[in-house]
């Protein structure tokens, strides 16, 4: 106890001795963003002068006159969000991913592809364990542990998403909906861990997923109504004189649905990451520890927690809307009634 008492004041003094000059921005140069070294005096002067709100303007001004090869906050953020061929583990180095070109098409394995594979591996491992435990389960036993946790989600998708939106014959679409839900969920969550990348924050990934939903919806519609019924569906049950307006609208509607899915998921996942990184970079741009402690870190944590929620929410929304579209396409009632019925759910 005595020793601790002796050491503590010393330690606190040391910390204060280090922190006070930093907080007072005495040697701000040392804490500028690493890449900005060449331009530091001008940059820091401008940044410190500008209030937080004016940061974009100040940055834009720099962007215009910045010399080639300079790394700025925006570039760093985009580098984080965009796909590339390097899987970086920043202080420890990075892995260069192979570049594959087949028949003129670039199908190289990028960061997001690696994330997709990680997600797939995780999904397969988790659900083989869960599935295995269900195989050993009689229906007199309750599931426990991982199986129990996953069952809650599976049951939620099965009843509240698939059954209530698709109705009759929902079992056929369950594997797709469940896979899409857990795939997106795991992608979203893996994007939130350090060194991870959000594959669902890439428009190509979300586009592919919504194309799957599109095909599933169209096939379900054809199966439910046949070719004649499908074409009738396009007229939305209106008088023939309105067909010239209704048919193009309905056809466009078929494509806007997956498009909306694409953009919603991609934008939500990208936006959260941009916000977190921007909040962190505010402190680098202003070169102030006060801003870092008071603004960047708390707000970034807040947005991070929000992102955790959004990860679940967006996976749910994508699945929910897929189920809704399938339900709309397979509904046997009139177009409007089924839409109203689906909207009630």
């Amino acid at each position: 106890m005595k020793r601790v008492n002796v050491i503590q004041p010393k330690a606190i003094l040391k910390v204060i001795a280090i922190l006070v000059p930093l907080l007072l921005n005495v040697n701000g140069h040392a804490f500028a963003a690493s890449g900005e070294s060449s331009d530091v005096p001008k940059n820091s002067a401008a940044a410190v002068a500008a209030p937080a709100v004016a940061v974009p303007a100040a940055e834009a001004a720099h962007g215009a006159e910045a010399p080639e090869g300079e790394e700025k906050a925006g570039d760093v953020i985009m580098h984080h969000i965009l796909d590339n061929n390097v899987f970086a583990f920043e202080p420890f180095g990075s892995i260069n991913l192979p570049k594959i070109v087949v028949g003129g098409y670039d199908i190289s394995v990028t960061k997001h592809v690696v994330m997709l594979w990680l997600v797939s591996a995780l999904l397969v491992i988790v659900f083989s364990v869960v599935g295995g435990s269900y195989k050993n389960l009689t229906n007199r036993q309750a599931p426990k542990g991982l199986a129990n946790a996953m069952e809650a989600l599976v049951e939620f998708i099965r009843l509240d998403v698939a059954k209530s939106n698709i109705g009759h014959g929902y079992e056929k679409h369950l594997p797709y909906l469940l896979t899409v839900f857990f795939f997106i969920l795991f992608c979203n969550l893996l994007g939130l861990i350090p060194y991870g990348a959000t594959a669902t924050g890439n428009v190509n990934v979300t586009l592919t997923l919504s194309i799957f939903t599109f095909f599933v919806t169209q096939i379900a519609a054809f199966k439910a109504h046949g070719v004649k019924g499908y074409l009738q569906h396009l007229t939305a049950g209106t008088h023939w004189s309105l067909w010239i307006i209704m048919v193009p609208i309905e056809i466009i509607g078929q494509f806007t649905k997956p498009f909306a899915l694409t953009v919603r998921l991609f934008a939500n996942m990208t936006a959260g990451h941009i916000i977190i990184l921007s909040l962190i970079f505010i402190s680098f741009i202003l070169k102030s520890y006060i801003v870092a402690v008071a603004v960047s870190v708390p707000f970034a944590i807040f947005i991070y927690l929000l992102e955790l929620f959004v990860a679940f929410l967006q996976a749910f929304v994508f699945t929910m809307l897929s189920a809704l579209f399938i339900g709309l396409a397979t509904a046997h009632e009139g177009h409007d009634e089924s839409a109203a019925g689906a909207a009630h759910h």
Partner: peptide, 17 residues
Amino acid sequence: PNPGLIFWTAITFVIVL
């Protein structure tokens, strides 16, 4: 658009499914 990523996503998703 990145055809490579679309391709890999599709393949991965179908296999996982």
